[in-house]
Nucleic acid binder design. Structure first.
Lengths: 219, 219
DNA sequence: AGGTGTGAACCCCTTCACAGCT
DNA sequence: AGCTGTGAAGGGGTTCACACCT
C-alpha cells in the first residue's frame, strides 16, 4: 500500500489540470506504474471505477485520502534542528499534504528558542509534554547518527508510535512502533553502484550502444 | 543489491568500535536484517568469510566499498538551492561517504553567486559546462515539483546518467538513465496510514493490548 | 562446536489475459 | 467498443535447513 500516496499525488495533479475522468492507463502513466498493478491496488479499496469509462478523479482522490487517513491533519515533531531539520521545519509542502509541524526539539542552546515557520525550538526534555499537549504520534529524527537511537527511545517513551528516521543509523523500536528510514548516502551509493557498472560495461564492450548496455545492466 | 550500503555502514560502525571479526549474525543485527539474507547477499560478492569464524570486518568493508564503487569520489551536481538543496549543500556527511558536491545550480538571481560549503551557485544554463568540466554523472534534483521534469531533461541532456529526485513529481528519463526518488510526504503518508489503522484497531477491540493489535495490523 | 555457503521450499508481488459490466 | 475487476501464471526475493569447512 506504499503506492497509495503516489496515486494520490497523480490524482491531485489531474484535478489541477481539470481532468474529470481517467482510465487506469491514464492514471498509471501519471503515477509511473503499470496499469494492471494500479487496477489491482484500487480494487482492494473497493470498486470505485466504471467499466467502459474509467475512474471519477475527484471521487477516487477522496477515497484514497480517506484510506490513508488524510481527512485529519497529523501533528508531527521534528527532533534535531541541523541543516536538514531546519529545511524540513521550513518546508511549506507539509501543510498541503495533511501534516503540521507541531513541535521542534533540540539540545543545542544556540538553537533552542529560535523560530522556524512560527514554531519555537524547545529542549528535548520537554518532548513528553509537547507530545501530550499536541497529541503527536509521528516523530521525525534529523539528528546525527550516534544519538538517533536515544532520541528514538525518548520518542517512543513519550508516546510516539511512528518514526521517520533521516539519521544515518539503524534504530530499533518495540513492536507496535513503525519506523521508516530515509538515507541520502545510501540512495547515492546505489546510484554510484549502477554508474560503476555502466562505465565498466562500456570498457568491456566498447562497440555496444550505451542504451543497450544500460538495459542489459539495469535490474 | 540495495542493501550493500547498509552493510557498509554497519561494518564501518564495527570498525570504529574496534571489532576485528564478526559473524553473519552479528552483522545482521548491526544492519537490521536477517542473517541468512546477509550471508546470501555476501556470497554473491565472493567467499569472503571463514567457516567457524566469521568475517574479517576490515577486509569485508573494503570489498563492499569496491563493489559499490566507492574507491573513487563521485562528483555530484545539486539543482535547486531551496531549503532542502541548501541543507544538502551544507551536509558534511557527503565527503566521508564517497561523494563530493561539485556544482550547485539554480535560476533564482538571489541565489546565484552565493556560496555553500565552498561551492558557488551558478545559473542552470551553465549546467552542461559544469558537468563536462567536473565529469559529473550524478545529479540531485531539489527543485519544486512542477519544474522537476525540465530539470531532469537538462541533466540528461548534459550527460548526467543518474538522478536522485527529491521533488514531489514523477520524472521520466530515457533508458540508460537511473532515477531514485525520495519523497518526504509519501513517507509520512505511509506512516499516517499505519497510524490510522492502529487507532481504528483500538476502537474496534478496546480490550486488546496495543502491542498485540500492532502486530496483527502491521504488514 | 561454530559458522559459512547454498539448494530447496516458500511466499508475496507483479504481470498477463480475459470475462463481464456499461 | 471500451475499460474495469480478477483468476491464473509467472518471477524474484526471502527464509529454512543443512552439508561442509575450519
Amino acid at each position: 500500500m506504499a503506492r497509495l500516496p503516489v496515486y494520490l499525488r497523480a490524482l491531485t495533479l489531474l484535478i489541477e489540470r481539470g481532468v474529470a475522468t481517467a482510465s487506469s492507463e491514464d492514471l498509471a502513466v501519471a503515477a509511473g506504474v503499470n496499469s494492471a498493478k494500479l487496477r489491482k491496488d484500487l480494487s482492494y479499496l473497493g470498486s470505485y471505477g466504471t467499466r467502459g469509462v474509467g475512474y471519477d478523479v475527484e471521487y477516487l482522490r477522496y477515497q484514497i485520502a480517506r484510506e490513508i487517513g488524510l481527512t485529519q491533519d497529523w501533528p508531527v515533531a521534528i527532533v534535531g534542528l541541523g541543516n536538514l531539520g531546519q529545511a524540513l521545519a521550513n518546508y511549506a509542502g507539509f501543510g498541503t499534504r495533511g501534516f503540521r509541524v507541531a513541535a521542534l526539539l533540540d539540545v543545542d542552546p544556540d538553537r533552542i528558542g529560535r523560530d522556524f515557520g512560527g514554531v519555537v525550538v524547545r529542549h528535548l526534555d520537554e518532548l513528553a509534554d509537547l507530545v501530550d499537549e499536541h497529541d503527536i504520534s509521528i516523530g521525525v529524527v534529523t539528528t546525527p547518527g550516534p544519538v538517533a537511537q536515544q532520541v528514538a527511545d525518548r520518542l517512543v517513551g513519550s508516546g510516539v508510535t511512528s518514526i521517520l528516521n533521516f539519521a544515518p543509523a539503524v534504530i530499533t523500536v518495540p513492536s507496535g512502533v513503525d519506523v521508516r528510514k530515509v538515507d541520502l548516502s545510501i540512495e547515492l551509493q546505489i546510484l554510484a553502484y549502477h554508474e560503476q557498472r555502466k562505465s565498466m560495461a562500456g570498457a568491456l564492450h566498447p562497440g555496444l550502444d550505451i542504451d543497450v548496455v544500460a538495459q542489459v545492466v539495469a535490474p
